[in-house]
Structures are given as structure tokens and as C-alpha cells.
Design a protein around this nucleic acid. Sequence first.
DNA 1: TTGGAATGTCAACAAGGCTGACATAAAATG
DNA 2: CATTTTATGTCAGCCTTGTTGACATTCCAA
Lengths: 169, 169
Amino acid sequence: MAEGHGSMIGGENLLFLTDEQLRKGIEAMFFAYRGFTADPDRILEEHGYGRAHHRALHFINRTHGTTVNNLLAVLGVTKQSLNRVLRTLIEDGLVESRVGRKDRRERNLYLTEAGRTLERALSEAQRERMRAAYRAAGPQAVAGFRQVLEAMMDDEIRRQYLTMRDRRA
Amino acid sequence: MAEGHGSMIGGENLLFLTDEQLRKGIEAMFFAYRGFTADPDRILEEHGYGRAHHRALHFINRTHGTTVNNLLAVLGVTKQSLNRVLRTLIEDGLVESRVGRKDRRERNLYLTEAGRTLERALSEAQRERMRAAYRAAGPQAVAGFRQVLEAMMDDEIRRQYLTMRDRRA
DNA sequence: TTGGAATGTCAACAAGGCTGACATAAAATG
DNA sequence: CATTTTATGTCAGCCTTGTTGACATTCCAA
């Protein structure tokens, strides 16, 4: 019958690992990511910015005073690419770059009031979508969601993510 | 104290919806998506292709004989953008474009043997990553993962996704 | 027969990745 | 102190992949 668990192929904890199931997961990931970025994208467009700006604002807000090198590591892009984005944010007065106090080669990055305002608008839109999804799926589903996502990261990124996951602002 | 559940704001099923929790979900999504695309990206680079080619191959393989318009709707890009990608895939002999039988304006798209080979390599790399994540997280987590992702999609996309989710090859 | 739909193509442009080369300042090291 | 390394910025150029607009072709359907 329909529920014959196929236990002959490895027990029920392997049952869900069919190519069919994996394909569904892959496509869900693809479509969900589109939703995930849709709301901030609309706001960014109004300001003439792109996702790269959002990412920079997010991580500067998240780790006040972070250095350029730090940001490069987290974002996984080249300094030339980041610099282009950072320069416009600084010119537009959303980000402030201060010479490092201990090490004066470094630049510590901060959001200005205007930067905080835009960051809040972006992250609030994204949080609202996430909140609705969490609410619809329930707490147990959320725990599973995070577990799978963390297991999907590259090892090095996961280490980085886990160390900063539970930081305080 | 630290565990004062804040039950005054809506009961424990709302407890996990703090901005902090939502931020973790957002960052997990960001980093996980990088992992999600990392393995196919490496293979694509060897062939001089990009993610756009992967997406086209995936959905042509998934729905043999799909039309260009169909593909546009699923991928959410302009026809000009898709056309450029499609053209190189056809020129390179990975995709075959046949004039529609009923409606001869339409083009039905199929993978050639070479196309199937590349598609298999790409999807197998991606499935392997997904498989490892699923295995590490367990069946319950996987169910939650899918629930949250589906809830995160745009409404229209979700409808589309759900109708094709359980199709047979 | 004519309007509109589906498709393709050309041109131009922008964002945001990349590499390589080079400049500067400051820290670290011998 | 001299040298090397590090952190950052910048210029130039290239690529992919998205966009818009204009226009041609084909062909179904009213």
C-alpha cells in the first residue's frame, strides 16, 4: 500500500533522501530566495541601490565599527567590488569611515543616522516576510529550517556564522 | 531573569519571533544560499557558463518540451536575457529547440544528450550537498525546512511551485 | 484580412562580480 | 633603522546577467 515505508532500503530515516525529495528542496530553495530578497529589492530600487548595498549596510549595522577586511571576509567579494559599493554609501552619507584608533591603517565603519534609517527599512521589510513565514510554519518548523540551512553552509562559513550567530548588538 | 518568557506578549508560540531570531534566520538564509550554489558554480565555471545557464538546464530537464514563455515565467527574467543564455546553449548543442507542433510560433525545448550529461553533473553536485544537509539535520528538520521555504515564497510563485512540486518526470 | 500573440534579434546600458597593477600609510620585524 | 608586510584605496578593463526599447517574423484567431 501507499505507506509501505520502503524500510528495505535503509530504514525510515533514509526514506526522504530520494532524488525527488532533494529536487523539491532545491527548487524550494530557489523560489524562496527570490521571495526572501523581493521586498528589500523594491526599496533599494527607489534609492538607486542594489543588493550589494543592502549586504554592506546589514553587516555594518550588525557589527558596528567593523573593518573593511572583516567585511570582505563575511561578504566573500573582492575589495574592489566592495569598495565601489562602500564609496557610494560613504559619499551618500549613509556610512562613516573612521581611521582606526589602535591600528591607523584600518578603517572602522559605522552607519550614520541616515544609514540606520535605510537599514531599518530594509531589514524590517525582510523580517516581516520572515516573520510571516515563521508564523505560518510554526516553531518546530523554524528549528528545522535553521538546522538544514546551517548544515548547507560551507564549512568555513558555518564556523564564521556560528561564532557570530549569538552575539549581542 | 534571562528566561522570563515574555508570555505577556502573546504566549510561547510567538516567543521565537524576536528580531534577534529573525536576524539569525535571515543570515542563515544568506550564507546557506552561498553554499547551495557553490558546487554547481565550480562546474559551470569549467564550462564557461554561469548560474543562468544552470537554471535554464534545470527547468528544461524538469519539464521536457517546455516553451520559452513557460520558462520565462518560471525563471522570472526577460526574454532578451533568457534568449542570450538559451542561444549559447543551443549553439553549444546542449539544448534543442523544436518548432511547436500545434502552435508553430512556440518553441519546445529539450536537452540533448550532452545537455543531460551536464545537467546531471550540476544537479548531482547540488543534490549531494542537500543530501548531506538533510542527513545531518534529520527528517523532522527537513519537513520544517520545506514548510518555512514554501511560506517565504511570493504568493504567485508559491502557487506555481505547489502545482509542479509533485509532478512526475 | 487584420489584429494580436509568441518569438527572435539588435543595440545600448547598468549593476556588480572579477583580475591585475599600482600607491600610500602604518605596523611589524629583522 | 631599514625592510617587509598589511590594510586600504584606486584605476583600468573584462565578464555575466539583468534591464529597456525598437523592430521583424510568424501565424493563430476573430
